[in-house]
Design a protein around this nucleic acid. Structure first.
Lengths: 250, 250
DNA sequence: AGGGAAATGTCAAGAAGCCGACATTCGCAC
DNA sequence: GTGCGAATGTCGGCTTCTTGACATTTCCCT
């Protein structure tokens, strides 16, 4: 369905159908209703968030700032994948996180801390993001305790993942980390074709290296090793896991 | 103030003064009111938690199980310090976390996941812990959205610390990690005497090594190095930071 | 007091991974 | 197409840290 867009103040775009065809299209447009966090909310509650919501589209490589001096926001990635990066002393990009479609990011901790020089970068050709103010979200949580509880569990889940990464970093070597990263990636986005698992590769080797916390050279070495053993196929466009079982056994 | 204790069903102890001198002593006893998370609660709300609250005392080296098949609980460390450990394949203790007085621990993520073979161990001569059921806490949050909000921010803060550790592990070497661990420890528990910062050492070198994610041997080497440079004094009982400024400059 | 376990120190060999350097390939803009 | 910059491969030396082995000290229990 094509939705004509109208420019509003603030540089964001909202659906024209918002004014024409009522709430249903509005919800479809903002995608909040789709997220399980917001299922318990009434339409009017969602609209309360939506009113002050921003919407953005971006293309591959585009930079989406969000750690700036503006009001802290929470973002929902509706389509595509992005990476959160910050700059080190030499000005190199440090990959902090990779966000998938449907995931929240931004000021999830609801604190005042400025993640100063952090910004997001689009990884896929088309990316759409919608966002709302942290303060508005807090107000809504105060009115909706079950939302607050769901959100707390959601943040808890995030923390669990982080802790898992931390434990991997401590106890496993680079090869194991690469393997678990690939298997998780495959489970998340892969499609099985004749026993093989295919998924699009929107990351550079540098990104992959940083995610598994090693140098690019080591990552390449491991990639070619896995490829030589016939466990994976790797290219810029696509990754294929030839034998998931054997890969996990390493 | 000495409080006589009475054994109740469940093996826990509650203050006899609970029945005698009213709520004020009750609150003092359970220490929940002291925690900033619970400041916004009414006394009856706190009592609702307290009713199903457990209380435990332990001595140095004592093991406090909490990852077992029981109902998931949230714990508040009222006095002393403890470490959260799990066992690896060879049965060695892996230090997961060190909990300070006033801190919460346990099933903070409010999920169902069992941290299977995890347990807590007392680090200081006297440790007191009180706890409540996760489910009761959730019920209370549903009635008190502002509590839920505070708790979310609290979990967020925990996550931020973990992320900080993660970043240190990625970008810094063992020496820097040891130094920042010591400076943080000093800020948290140290007392300044004539320009030096003293604090009690309730950790073994093995514990310290695991916290900064290195081997014991490396940790010892770094400790003696720092000591030879006159930056710190290290013993089993006490640690003294001779020159905080120079230590940070490393 | 004394015996044993745990904790602390020390050393050296070896592994894992980092880093710089370089060649090659790919993709995009002109 | 052509050129340029980014991304991809590859190599080898070098640093950091791990690992095992051992001696010594301290603490705690009886």
């Amino acid at each position: 369905m094509y939705i004509e867009k109208t420019s509003l103040s603030g540089g964001f775009f909202v659906s024209k159908s918002l004014y024409l065809s009522g709430m249903f299209d509005e919800l479809k447009y903002w995608y909040l209703r789709d997220h399980k966090l917001f299922r318990t909310l009434s339409m009017s509650q969602i609209r309360q968030l939506c009113i002050i919501t921003g919407f953005k589209k971006a293309q591959k490589g585009d930079v989406i700032y969000f750690g700036t001096s503006e009001m802290p926001r929470i973002y929902l990635l509706k389509k595509g994948s992005i990476k959160i990066v910050s700059l080190d002393d030499e000005g190199n990009e440090i990959v902090k996180d990779v966000i998938q479609k449907g995931d929240l990011f931004g000021h999830l901790e609801l604190d005042e801390g400025d993640e100063g020089n952090e910004y997001a970068k689009a990884l896929t050709p088309e990316v759409s993001i919608c966002s709302f103010l942290q303060s508005d979200f807090e107000q809504l949580m105060l009115k909706h305790p079950d939302l607050a509880l769901s959100y707390t569990k959601f943040v808890g889940l995030k923390m669990k993942r982080l802790r898992n990464n931390y434990n991997n970093l401590i106890s496993k070597d680079a090869k194991s980390r690469l393997v678990s990263f690939f298997t998780e990636w495959a489970e998340r986005e892969g499609t099985e074709i004749e026993g093989r698992i295919h998924f699009e590769n929107y990351l550079t080797q540098n990104d992959i290296a940083q995610i598994i916390c090693t140098s690019r050279q080591t990552a390449v070495q491991l990639l070619t090793e896995l490829e030589n053993k016939g466990l994976i196929y790797y290219s810029r466009k696509e990754i294929i896991i030839e034998n998931l079982q054997k890969l996990k056994e390493i």
